[in-house]
């Protein structure tokens, strides 16, 4: 027990790997002291577990219709009730975590690197490269995000993949802006001058020296943005432009339940609560990460 904490917390690590692990362990210790952040982390971990073990957790097939049992209130057999096609809402929410996670992952994977690369290049090189790239981001930022995403989905055709693409296309400009602002500060620093003196190429400087310093604020921004991404995906689903039936997507489920919202409240309420909890989880996690990673 004490040996591995000693290994991680030593003042004089004996390899790069030990130094890096030690640094990460210190961050984790700081993160653990923040109870709200831990709540956020628990929610996200729970989301991952539910998505991974969905077949074990779900009580019924999320796609199985049973018109004899439509719009039943929550009960022992259908914990969250059934929807207008007699499908078990609890099982659909459980399987919906997978859809949500797919959206979140695809957006993160596409938006983060694009925004980072564009922002860091723009900020470090300056001049006409900077002007061209920043005008491009301005164009994207001039439109409200949901409206732009709607336009893209309408052009690309409804569907989960196209919804993700549309969200990614509309989501990168703020990341580029953040990365550029960070880069403008970093490029003035003496350690960048020092590495230039050692003959480093511009790619090396941007990639190995500037980008790692932009990363923390972008990771924080991503986690804080996740709530927004989930809500936009749900919004697109609600409008019928996201995941197509019968895929159990939470936004589409709310949309399907809106006709019965006064008589059969459970149809729209439970997916809504699920969206709420996951969005809150990402938000709390992002807040906690900011405290730990942005030591400013």
């Amino acid at each position: 027990m004490t040996t591995w904490t000693d290994y991680l917390l030593t003042d004089s690590p004996s390899s790069r790997r030990q130094a890096r692990l030690g640094q990460m362990y210190r961050k984790w210790l700081a993160f653990r002291r923040n109870p709200l952040a831990m709540v956020g982390l628990c929610i996200i971990v729970a989301l991952l577990l539910v998505a991974a073990f969905a077949p074990l957790i779900a009580t019924a097939d999320p796609l199985a219709q049973n018109l004899d049992r439509r719009l039943l209130p929550p009960s022992g057999t259908n914990v969250f009730g059934t929807d207008s096609l007699g499908r078990d809402i609890f099982s659909r929410i459980v399987y919906g975590t997978r859809v949500t996670l797919v959206i979140v992952l695809l957006v993160v994977v596409s938006v983060g690197p694009i925004g980072l690369l564009i922002g860091a290049t723009s900020g470090y090189l300056g001049g006409w490269v900077d002007r061209a790239l920043m005008r491009m981001t301005d164009v994207f930022m001039a439109f409200p995000r949901l409206v732009l995403a709607l336009a893209f989905v309408a052009a690309l055709g409804p569907g989960l993949e196209n919804a993700v693409i549309a969200i990614a296309i509309t989501a990168w400009p703020p990341y580029a802006r953040v990365a550029r602002a960070e880069t403008l500060i970093i490029r003035q620093q003496d350690y960048i001058a020092a590495i230039r003196l050692q003959g480093a190429s511009q790619w090396r400087i941007v990639w190995k020296h500037v980008v790692p310093l932009c990363l923390p604020s972008l990771i924080v921004r991503t986690t804080l943005d996740m709530a927004g991404v989930i809500l936009i995906a749900a919004g697109l689903g609600f409008l019928g432009l996201g995941a197509q039936p019968p895929i159990p997507e939470w936004g589409a489920m709310i949309s399907a339940g809106r006709e019965q919202i006064f008589d059969q409240w459970w149809v729209a309420t439970f997916p809504g609560i699920a969206i709420c909890i996951v969005a809150l989880g990402f938000n709390l996690l992002g807040d906690g990460l900011r405290d730990v990673m942005d030591a400013r």
């Binding site: 790069r16 130094a19 890096r20 620093q189 003496d190 350690y191 590495i195 020296h209 790692p212």
Partner: peptide
Amino acid sequence: YASLHPRHT
């Protein structure tokens, strides 16, 4: 304090 990269050993 400014001439060493904060994330490089």
